[in-house]
């Protein structure tokens, strides 16, 4: 073997190791969080930290399911996330089709109008929403959060799904229409099945967003509609922070999201850029 080849081989081995190191560094804080959920209080505060070899315990999980009734907040989160996601998709599909397939005045202007409203920070209108909820007698209800989230979800869904529709050749629909199908029938039988994957990915990403949302949910709910992310307030007690239950809740609360995200990782780059960049 020539020396140059050896150098190249060693160099690429080094880069491989570097890559693994980098990825491990990003994964480590998460894995340490999950492992901490199974540690006793003593092990959590050990210094130097205990990375492996501790005796796992399930006491924190028992605690959050029995004492803190975490299932109740999971149920709230699920109701709100599922309803808001379904409503979003239902409202957004016709609008998406219109943006993708028709030519009309001010089209891009309207599309950017949606995008700018998507940019409005939750924290900047949450106190106005607080007064609105009060004036409508909708404080601390599921329905209010479900509807409020549409403000961010619908523009997001339109921008995401528009790319998926535009990626489907319009000729497929046209040939169906030549064969006598109405425009709606052509959409339902040809385009809709082809964009099903894109719709599912969009739905999952919206679900993740609502499931994780904190700023709005924290100030608009107290008991009835309280969601998972806002339960952190329960861990801050007068006698200090209850770390074990917090780690257990974080582990359970992030599990569905991590699984969902890995399912749609193919769509993730479009998801992060509102469909502006294809992965």
């Amino acid at each position: 073997m020539k020396l140059g080849n050896l150098r190249a081989l060693l160099g690429s081995r080094f880069l491989d190791l570097l890559t693994i190191g980098v990825v491990a560094a990003f994964l480590f804080p998460y894995l340490f969080m999950v492992s901490s959920a199974f540690k006793t209080r003593l092990d959590t505060f050990a210094y130097p930290p205990i990375f492996w070899g501790f005796t796992p315990t399930l006491e924190h999980f028992e605690n959050i399911f029995s004492d803190m009734n975490i299932l109740y907040y999971m149920k709230n989160s699920t109701i709100i996330a599922v309803c808001s996601t379904l409503l979003t998709i239902l409202i957004s599909i016709p609008a998406t089709y219109s943006f993708a397939r028709f030519r009309f005045h001010y089209k891009e202007g309207v599309a950017y109008g949606f995008l700018f409203l998507q940019m409005v920070p939750g924290i900047s209108i949450v106190f106005a929403l607080f007064f609105i909820a009060g004036s409508l007698n909708l404080s601390d209800t599921h329905i209010f959060l479900i509807v409020v989230y549409l403000l961010w979800n619908v523009p997001y869904a339109i921008w995401m799904m528009r790319g998926f529709v535009e990626g489907i050749p319009v000729e497929l629909e046209e040939s169906a229409m030549v064969d006598g199908a109405s425009r709606f029938k052509a959409f339902r039988l040809i385009t809709l099945p082809l964009m099903a994957g894109g719709i599912a990915a969009t739905a999952i990403l919206i679900f993740i967003g609502v499931w994780n949302e904190f700023s709005v949910a924290f100030f608009l709910t107290s008991t009835e509609a309280r969601t998972m992310p806002t339960t952190i307030a329960f861990f801050m007690t007068h006698s200090g922070i209850k770390w074990g239950p917090m780690f257990a809740t974080a582990t359970i609360g992030t599990l569905p999201v991590v699984i969902f995200a890995l399912l749609v990782r193919r769509y993730f780059i479009s998801a992060l850029t509102f469909g502006a960049v294809k992965g």
Partner: peptide, 21 residues
């Protein structure tokens, strides 16, 4: 790629708590 997605999809409020510790 899959491993890099995980930090971005974790609940920010829980990330904040964990960061605090």
């Amino acid at each position: 790629t899959a491993a890099l997605i995980i930090p971005m999809v974790l609940m920010p409020s829980m990330v904040g708590m964990v960061g605090r510790l």
